[in-house]
Design a protein around this nucleic acid. Structure first.
Lengths: 338, 338
DNA sequence: ACTCGAATTGGAAACGTTTCTGGTAACGTT
DNA sequence: AACGTTACCAGAAACGTTTCCAATTCGAGT
C-alpha cells in the first residue's frame, strides 16, 4: 500500500504536522527535524496524495488547455511550449481537444469534469464561451491565437495573446501587391462573425482598397473550414471560376491544398500564380514550391499565455490583451509580376 | 462558495449518505428520495468535489497519455480518437508530451505528479520504461504504435497495439521490387536496438534478401531522428553518394523532406526515383507528387488501445499484444521501371 | 535560578466525500 | 399478535492532507 504522511512521521520519530511543514517548506521547523524527515521521505520513496492535499487546499494547481482541432500542426507547436512552461511555473496541465465540429456542450462537460482546475488556456478561435459558461467558472483564462470580442464577455475579464489578424493579413496581401499583383484571390474559411477568417478577410479587403484595387467577389472563396480537403475543393471552384495571378490563403495548410489543386489545373506556382499564407508551419518548407508565409511566433505566444495566466493566478498581474508580430518567411511561391 | 453534499442533504431534507447514494446510483434508495435529491442537485447546480471523492475512493479514473513528440501529425491523429474513446469509457484524460530529446527523468517526474492515475497509454517508441519506473506504478499500461520488448519488462505485464513494423516495411519494399526496382535506398532514423527504425530496416533487408538483391550499405542512410530537417540532410548525403531508382523512407514526414531534397538534386519523383513510406498522413496527399504510403489505421489503433486499457481496469480482459495491418494508399510517387 | 520571548513541536479540527453499521418502518406470514 | 424479512435511511468513521492553536523547549538577559 501507499505510504502516508503518518508513516513518515512514525519512522522519523516526529509528528504529522512537522512532516507536512517540511514537505511544504515552511520556515518554522528545525534543521535537524527537516533533514531527518527528508531522509525518510527519500528512503521510503514517499509521494504525497494530491487528492487529500487538494481537498484541504481547495484548489488543484492544474491548468486546462482546451484546443479546437489538435490536428492543426500550428497548435501542436504551441502546445509543446505551453506544456513545459506550465510545468516550469509549478502547475500541471490537462489538455483537451474539441473536434472541429463538436458543439461546446461537450466542452462544458469536460470543464465540469475537470473542475478544480485553476486556470484555462483556450487555443484557437470559434469557442462558444457563453455555452461553456466560462464566466461562472470563476477561474482566470487566456485565449491564445485569437483575441477578438467574445460575445458578451467583458474584455477586462480575461486575457489574450494573438497576432493582429487583420493587420497581418493586410501585410500578406500588401506583399503581393508590392510584387505587382492586382488580381489577387482569397481563400478563406467563412465570412461574417468575428472569426479569425473574417478578420483576415477584412485585412485582405483593406489592403486592396488602400492600393486602389476594386474588390472582386469572384476572387473570394470560402472553404467552410480550415481542413485541407475543404480548401482543396474550394481552390478548384476558384480556379474554374476566375483568373488571378496571386492567391492569399488564410492558413498554410489551406495554401498547401490549394497549390495542389492549382497544379491540377495546370496553373504553375509561382510562374502563373503566386501564393502567400499565414502560419509558418515547418512542413511548408518542404513542399514544392516552398511556401512564402507569415510565420506566427508560436513559442513566444505560448510563453506569453502561460506567463499571463501564472501572473493572474499568483495575484499580481492583470488581464491584458497582447498582440504579437509575425515574421515573413520567404519561400519560392511568390514572384514579381513582370 | 461551492455547495457541498451536506448542503444538498439539508435542502432536500435528507441525509448526506442518501445524497451520496443517489449520486452514485446505488439501488437502495426510494424513488421519492431519489427524484427529490436530483431536483435539488439540478436546481442548485451542484458539482461534486473530485478530490474528496478520489481521496476515499483511492483512485482517480484518469488515464494518462504520454506521447513522445506531439508535433508528429500521426500521433495527433491518434490522440483525437483516444480522447473521445477515453471519455466514452467514463474516464478522463491527461495528456503529456515528452520532447524528442528530453530524457525520461522529466517523464518520471510527470508521472509522480500525475499519480493517482489509473492507467497509462504510451504513444510512440523510444521510451525508457525502466527509467520511468513504470513497473512500480502498479497501474496497467498499453503501448500504442510500438510493440517490441521493453528492456527487462515482462510482456505479460502490459499490452500493446501496433503495426508489425518489420512486416509492413517488408511490404513497402516488396512493392518497389515488384515495380522493377533493384537499387532501393533506405532512409531510416538509426540502426540498432529494438527501435521502430531498426525493425523497419530489418524488413527492408529481408525484402531485398528474399528477392536476391544484395544489401548495399551505401544505400542506407540514418537521419538520427524522425525530424524533417534531419531527414532532409540525410537525403542529401544519400543523393550525393549513391545512385538509386527508388527510396523507402520509414515515415511520411521523412519521405516528404527527402522528396524536396531529391528535387534540389534534379532527381525527379517518380520519373528518376520512386518513393514509398509508412504512415499515411493526410498532408502527403497534397504534396507534389502525392506520396505512395502504407497507411496506419490510426483510429482503430487508438480505439483498440483504450478498449484494452478499459478492460484491464474493469478487471475483465488480460494483457495482450495486437498487431494491425496497414493499407496501401497509392499516390503518384512510385512508377514501374520500364 | 528565574523570567520572557522566540523557536519549535504535537494534537486536533477541518476539507467533502463514500461506505459501513445499525436502526426503524412497512409489510406479509404464521 | 408476534415474528421475520425487506427496504430504506441516518450517523459516524474513514480517506490523507494542511493548518490553527496550544504546549513545550530553548537561549538569553536579568
Amino acid at each position: 500500500m501507499h505510504l502516508t504522511i503518518k508513516d513518515i512521521a512514525k519512522y522519523s520519530g516526529t509528528s504529522v504536522s512537522t512532516v507536512s511543514r517540511v514537505l511544504n517548506n515552511h520556515p518554522d521547523v528545525s534543521e535537524k527535524a527537516r533533514t531527518q524527515v527528508l531522509k525518510i521521505v527519500e528512503q521510503y520513496h514517499y509521494v504525497p496524495n494530491n487528492s487529500a492535499r487538494n481537498l484541504v487546499i481547495r484548489e488543484s494547481a492544474t491548468i486546462a488547455v482546451i484546443v479546437r482541432g489538435i490536428a492543426n500542426p500550428f497548435f501542436t507547436r504551441i502546445i509543446k511550449t505551453i506544456e513545459s512552461a506550465i510545468y516550469a511555473e509549478g502547475y500541471s496541465m490537462s489538455l483537451h481537444q474539441i473536434g472541429s465540429s463538436d458543439d461546446e456542450l461537450m466542452a462544458a462537460a469536460m470543464l465540469e469534469r475537470e473542475k478544480r482546475l485553476c486556470g484555462i488556456i483556450f487555443l484557437g478561435g470559434r469557442f462558444n464561451y457563453s455555452a461553456m459558461d466560462v464566466a461562472t467558472l470563476r477561474v482566470p483564462f487566456v485565449c491564445c491565437t485569437y483575441a477578438n470580442t467574445f460575445g458578451a464577455l467583458d474584455p477586462e475579464g480575461f486575457s489574450s495573446v494573438a497576432i493582429d489578424d487583420k493587420r497581418e493579413a493586410y501585410r500578406a496581401v500588401r506583399f503581393l501587391i508590392e510584387h505587382g499583383h492586382r488580381r489577387i484571390a482569397a481563400l478563406i474559411e467563412a465570412k461574417g462573425g468575428a472569426s479569425i477568417s473574417q478578420l483576415r478577410y477584412e485585412g485582405y479587403c483593406e489592403a486592396l482598397a488602400d492600393a486602389g484595387i476594386a474588390l472582386d467577389p469572384a476572387l473570394v472563396e470560402c472553404a467552410g473550414s480550415f481542413e485541407m480537403e475543404d480548401a482543396y475543393h474550394a481552390a478548384a471552384r476558384l480556379a474554374e471560376r476566375a483568373h488571378f495571378t496571386a492567391l492569399f490563403a488564410i492558413s498554410d495548410a489551406m495554401a498547401m491544398a490549394a497549390m495542389k489543386q492549382l497544379s491540377l489545373h495546370n496553373i504553375r506556382v509561382p510562374e502563373d500564380c503566386s501564393v502567400i499564407a499565414i502560419d509558418g508551419l515547418e512542413l511548408t518548407n518542404y513542399c514544392t514550391p516552398t511556401l512564402t508565409t507569415l510565420e506566427q511566433p508560436a513559442e513566444e505566444m505560448a510563453l506569453a499565455s502561460v506567463k499571463t495566466l501564472a501572473g493572474l493566478l499568483r495575484g499580481d498581474g492583470t488581464n491584458n490583451h497582447v498582440f504579437m508580430e509575425t515574421k515573413l518567411r520567404t519561400g519560392a511561391s511568390v514572384r514579381s509580376l513582370e
